[in-house]
């Protein structure tokens, strides 16, 4: 089966919710495949966004590029609707001044239709997410 970056908007994925949005730095920037563009949080934490694949996928490896993110929780759902999220990954990231956080997760049980990312806390008043990519395979398209 062909392996691809499942999160890309060009592959049909979509950010269906984000708790904050600056018109200049919208959440779509997370999945445009370009780490130069980013989404910013615009206030108090927690902050979250949800990525919808529009199909059933199996994720093998997840990479998130961000800045100032401290505690990150990732939940996933395998429903057709954005419901029944279950806890998947939670991690405290490290902050290095002036350097993009590049966090890689090797996924166990990576079956999903939606991913919810919750930034529980940050190292500063604001945080940014530059890109999220998920290597894996498409299991099935929605009927």
């Amino acid at each position: 089966m062909r392996k691809l970056d499942l999160c890309l908007s060009s592959e049909g994925s979509e950010v269906i919710l984000a708790t904050s949005s600056d018109e200049k730095h919208p959440p779509e920037n997370i999945i445009d495949g370009n780490p130069e563009t980013f989404w910013t949080t615009t206030g108090m934490f927690p902050q979250e966004f949800i990525i919808f694949f529009h199909k059933h996928v199996k994720i093998e490896r997840l990479v998130i590029q961000s800045y100032f993110v401290r505690t990150l929780r990732i939940e996933k759902s395998t429903s057709k609707e954005p419901v029944d999220f279950e806890q998947w990954i939670e991690k405290d990231l490290i902050h290095t001044e002036g350097q993009l956080q590049n966090e890689e997760f090797v996924a166990r049980d990576g079956y999903a239709t939606y991913l919810r990312f919750v930034i529980i806390s940050a190292f500063d008043h604001f945080a940014s997410v530059h890109s999220i990519s998920a290597d894996g395979t498409v299991i099935s398209d929605f009927a």
Binding site: D22, F38, T40, F68, Q99, L100, F126, H130
Partner: peptide, 8 residues
């Protein structure tokens, strides 16, 4: 901060 993010 946005400028910082931009420069990363």
């Amino acid at each position: 901060k946005v400028e910082v993010f931009q420069a990363l």
